[in-house]
Deep mutational scan, measured.
Amino acid sequence: MTEYKLVVVGAGGVGKSALTIQLIQNHFVDEYDPTIEDSYRKQVVIDGETCLLDILDTAGQEEYSAMRDQYMRTGEGFLCVFAINNTKSFEDIHHYREQIKRVKDSEDVPMVLVGNKCDLPSRTVDTKQAQDLARSYGIPFIETSAKTRQGVDDAFYTLVREIRKHKEKMSKDGKKKKKKSKTKCVIM
């Protein structure tokens, strides 16, 4: 069974824990209790493949930012979460993405942009803004509501699919490099 290491990042209060708990335990946590770091595991079937999701729910508070490099190193894919009623959390996505790329030393890291709290009427981040940002990053965008469960499975499952595509691409690139290195030079 394939294991996928997913990391949920975003500013404090955007609903990272609520999304994760909704996926794992099928219930909505409405009281806000700032996370330092929590880890969850769940076995699911995605596109006919049974897999184990190892999900790291991270601290959004700035005082825990020193811990970010460590979990970013171990993560295979990242859910970059903002709240649709919090423009600052949307603007912060850029910083999370840049930090992930720096730590992973790669421009090509599996990510999904997630606009959470889409059940709320007080939207300050337009869907088109988020779609445009995701398009500019070359990553999928999904709106979710941890409260109603809308888009929750889709967000995590899409990230797994992005990781699969990335692994497939990397193995193809690896095979191309191996083929090239088999060419021999004969000096007579």
Rank of each mutant, 00 (worst) to 15 (best):
T2S: 10
T2C: 08
E3M: 10
E3R: 02
E3N: 04
Y4Q: 14
V7N: 14
V8I: 13
V8F: 02
A11H: 08
G12S: 08
G13H: 14
V14E: 15
G15N: 01
G15F: 01
G15K: 00
K16P: 01
A18M: 03
L19D: 15
T20I: 07
T20H: 00
Q22N: 08
Q22C: 04
Q25H: 07
Q25T: 15
Q25Y: 11
N26Y: 04
N26C: 13
V29Q: 05
E31A: 05
E31V: 05
T35G: 00
T35A: 00
T35I: 00
I36W: 03
S39M: 02
Y40M: 00
K42C: 08
K42I: 11
K42M: 08
V45M: 13
V45S: 12
I46A: 12
E49G: 08
E49W: 05
T50K: 13
C51A: 11
C51M: 13
C51I: 11
L52K: 05
D54A: 01
I55V: 07
L56C: 10
D57E: 00
D57R: 00
T58H: 01
A59R: 02
A59S: 08
Q61E: 12
Q61L: 08
E62Q: 10
E62C: 06
E62W: 06
E62S: 07
Y64K: 12
Y64T: 11
S65D: 11
S65L: 04
S65T: 08
A66T: 11
R68D: 15
D69W: 05
Q70M: 14
Q70N: 06
Q70F: 10
Y71P: 11
Y71Q: 13
T74D: 15
T74V: 08
E76W: 11
G77R: 01
F78P: 00
L79W: 02
L79Y: 12
L79H: 01
F82Y: 09
A83C: 12
A83Y: 02
A83W: 01
A83R: 06
T87N: 06
K88D: 15
F90C: 09
F90G: 07
F90N: 13
E91D: 08
H95F: 15
Y96H: 06
Y96R: 07
Y96C: 08
R97E: 04
R97Y: 11
Q99G: 03
I100W: 08
I100R: 02
I100A: 03
K101Y: 14
K101C: 14
K101P: 01
R102N: 09
K104F: 15
K104T: 15
K104S: 12
D105S: 14
E107I: 08
D108P: 08
V109T: 13
V109W: 07
V112T: 04
V114C: 04
V114Q: 02
N116Q: 14
N116D: 14
N116V: 15
C118F: 07
C118G: 08
C118H: 11
L120T: 10
P121V: 08
R123D: 12
R123P: 08
T124C: 09
T124A: 08
V125N: 07
T127C: 06
K128Y: 04
Q129A: 10
Q131P: 09
D132I: 05
L133I: 06
A134Y: 04
R135C: 11
R135D: 14
Y137G: 08
Y137C: 06
Y137P: 10
G138R: 15
I139A: 04
I142L: 05
I142F: 07
T144Y: 04
T144V: 12
S145L: 04
K147G: 15
R149S: 05
G151V: 14
D153Y: 07
D154L: 05
A155C: 14
Y157T: 07
T158M: 15
L159E: 02
V160N: 07
E162F: 03
R164N: 15
K165D: 04
H166R: 05
H166P: 03
K167T: 09
K167E: 04
M170S: 14
G174F: 03
G174S: 09
K175I: 12
K177F: 08
K178Y: 10
K178I: 08
S181T: 14
K182T: 01
K182C: 03
T183E: 14
I187V: 07
M188P: 15
